Amino acid sequence: MKTYIMFGVKTFSNQLSYRSEVWLRLLGNFVAILILTEIWKAVLGNGTIEGIGVEQMITYSIINTLLAALLLTGISSKVDNSLKTGSIASELIKPMSYPLHLLSEGLGNSVYQLVFTSIPSLIIAWVFFGFLPPASATHLLLFLITLLLALAISFLLGYLISLLAFWLMNHFALNWMLGGLITIFSGSFLPLWFFPDSWVTVTKTLPFLYLGYLPAAVYLGAIPLQEIATLILTGMAWIAGLTLLVCWLWNRAIKRLVVQGG
């Protein structure tokens, strides 16, 4: 385990070499939040829709903008690059678990983004746009739990896409499709409470709502506690199912790589 922690620390340290990017990320987050804030002010004004006012929507937009920087869906890009360069072969012969290696590097990057992008962006957004506190201490705790679910599910989805690239040899189309599904079904831009009932039913059968809607809605107290408990259990089931799927695909992918490589 110490080895994987060091991989995460190394990734964090490597990111420090690109400190100039921090300012661009902060500016990008500010502009994104500004645009969303103006949209919701124009749509809601001083009124509410489904009991949600402009202050709640601004907080919701801030949470989702900052959450996007923490998710681990970019794992597939690393694996795709390793496949194209052939470095995947040397990585697989090392005495370590390749999936855990990817996870540790992804978490190292997420911690970096949290410290140098998300927290500063949150402070800036709070000063310029306002940011509501959590609905209660219980909702804050549940928000942190859903955040862990979001990290786990985002990693497994990104890893799933990377494993499929072993057969397709290019992850671009799959990664683009995953990004589109997350944008539509995560509720990161348009919350589920604005969706038609039929779309809500479909969305709740998919894992994407854990990557946007659920953490923000839990933070705001927009979901009953009993429903939150059900969604958390469902999220854990998704993690278990995706883990089994990627483990099966990993075994198939290794055999395929060995056959192709002789």
Rank of each mutant, 00 (worst) to 15 (best):
Q226L: 01
M96D: 10
N14E: 15
I88S: 05
S20R: 09
S13I: 14
L122E: 06
L233F: 13
P120M: 06
S198T: 13
L245M: 15
G130L: 07
N109E: 14
S154Q: 04
K10Y: 14
W167A: 04
G108N: 01
L147V: 12
A69G: 01
S186I: 11
L114S: 06
E21R: 11
M169K: 15
E50C: 07
I254A: 06
I52N: 04
Q226W: 10
S61I: 12
G53V: 00
N251C: 09
W40P: 07
V31M: 06
T146G: 02
S198L: 12
G187C: 05
Y210T: 01
W23F: 13
V9H: 02
L192E: 01
L66I: 11
W176G: 14
G28A: 13
S186V: 08
M96E: 14
F208C: 04
A240K: 02
G158N: 02
S162V: 05
M1Q: 11
T146H: 06
F194R: 13
S90P: 06
G262M: 15
Y98C: 09
I5F: 15
S198A: 12
G86E: 00
F12L: 09
W167P: 04
L66F: 04
G53D: 15
S97K: 08
F131Q: 01
I239P: 03
Q226G: 00
G51K: 03
T48M: 15
N29I: 07
M169H: 14
K204D: 02
R19I: 12
A135K: 11
F129V: 01
Q260M: 12
L190M: 15
A152V: 10
H139P: 00
T37R: 12
S110L: 09
G241Y: 03
G74D: 12
I63C: 09
V54P: 08
I254N: 04
V31E: 06
I5T: 13
A216E: 05
I88G: 02
A253Y: 05
L233T: 13
A165L: 11
I58C: 01
N64M: 09
A165R: 05
I33Q: 03
G187S: 05
S77D: 13
M6Q: 14
I223P: 01
T48P: 07
S162F: 00
L107C: 02
W199L: 14
G45I: 09
E105I: 08
G187R: 09
P95I: 08
G45P: 00
G180M: 07
V22K: 02
V54A: 03
L144E: 00
T183P: 03
F194H: 12
K255M: 11
T59H: 11
L107V: 15
T37L: 05
T205C: 06
G180C: 08
W250L: 11
T11Y: 11
L151E: 06
Y112N: 02
E38T: 10
L27Y: 11
K84L: 09
P134D: 06
I145R: 09
I49Y: 14
L44V: 07
N46A: 15
V43A: 13
G262F: 10
